[in-house]
Computed example of a mutant assay.
Amino acid sequence: MPILEDAYVGASCVIKTKSNDLLTMGTLQKIKESYLDISNTRNELPEIPYNMLVKIEIYNSQIGFRVLLGSVYISSSKLVRIINLSEAAASEKREFFRINVREYGYLYDENADEFEVELVDISLGGLLFKSKREYSIGTYLTIRIPILGNTNAFHCIVRRHVEFDKGYMGCGCEFTELTMLQEDQLYKFMLKKQNDQLKRVR
C-alpha cells in the first residue's frame, strides 16, 4: 500500500538533506507503493547524488502536512524519484519544517496590552520570538504577524526559554487552536521564504 494517499498528487513539496539543508522544491507527480516522483514544471531540478538520504516535506491544504524520509534513486532536471520511504515521527515534523525569519510580530498578553517582538524562527508547530520582556513557561499569548497578511491572530503557549545577548529572552511557543486557514498561510509563507533562499543559492 502506498505511503501517501492519491490526494497528495499535485501537492507542493520540499526536498532537504538529512541535516535539513534545502535541496530543491517541486510538485508531487506520482505516488506508488515503492516510490514517489517529484517534478518541476520549469525542469530546473538539481542533480542529487544516487542513494542520498533525504527528507521530503509535503503539504496539501485539505488533508495536511506530511514528512517522509527516503533515498534518491533517480535524479535529473525533470524528475527526482525517491525510494525506501518511511514516515517521520510526529515530533520530528515540527523540527524539519522550520525556517529562520527576521520579521516583527505584535504580542498581546492577558491584559490585551500590545508589545512588539522579533521573530527568530517559525514552523507549522510554533515559533520562537525574542523580547526584553519575560514570559513564564505555560503562559498563553496571542500574536499577530503582519507579514502573513490579513489573518486572525495566532494563539500559542510558551514551552521553553532561550537566552540571547543584550538582555533579550527568547520564548519558544507552540501554536494552539490553529485553523486550517492559518496553517495554509503559514505554509505558503514558509514555501516562499524557501524559494527565495533557493534563488540566492543559485
Rank of each mutant, 00 (worst) to 15 (best):
Q197V: 00
D196E: 14
A7S: 14
G10V: 04
I74M: 10
L22H: 00
A90H: 07
R160L: 05
H155S: 15
L45H: 01
I38F: 03
D121I: 00
D109T: 02
L107W: 04
E44A: 09
G172C: 07
N40A: 12
L128K: 05
K16G: 05
E183S: 13
G70R: 04
D113G: 02
S75F: 02
H161R: 08
L68A: 02
K166E: 13
V101N: 03
Y35W: 07
K199H: 10
L178F: 09
G170D: 12
E103F: 05
N150H: 12
R102F: 13
Y106Q: 07
G126E: 00
N43I: 05
I122P: 01
S12M: 12
R66K: 15
L36G: 05
Y73E: 13
K18L: 09
A153H: 08
I157L: 08
L79P: 00
K16Y: 03
F175W: 09
L186P: 03
G64D: 00
D37Q: 08
N195Q: 15
I74Y: 07
K16S: 11
Q182S: 11
G167Y: 06
R81V: 06
F65Q: 04
Q29N: 13
Y168M: 09
N100T: 05
V54F: 05
R94H: 07
T27M: 09
R133G: 11
F129Y: 12
S34N: 14
T176Q: 13
I145L: 15
C171I: 04
S75E: 02
S91P: 01
N60Y: 02
T139G: 04
D37I: 08
L69W: 15
E57G: 04
A112V: 08
V162N: 07
Y8E: 04
G26P: 06
F96I: 12
I145A: 09
V117M: 08
N20S: 08
V14F: 04
N20R: 05
G70Y: 06
S71P: 00
Y140T: 11
L79E: 13
E174P: 03
M190C: 00
T179N: 02
L69S: 10
T139M: 05
V54S: 04
E95K: 15
A7V: 11
N20I: 06
Q194W: 01
Q197R: 15
S131L: 00
K55L: 14
I122Y: 01
E118K: 12
F189A: 02
V54K: 00
T176M: 15
S12I: 05
Q194C: 05
P146F: 07
G70Q: 05
A7D: 14
L181K: 14
S136M: 10
G64V: 02
T41K: 10
N84P: 00
E44C: 09
R202W: 09
V117D: 05
E177C: 10
R102Q: 14
R42F: 12
L28H: 06
I56A: 11
L186Q: 04
E110N: 14
R81K: 10
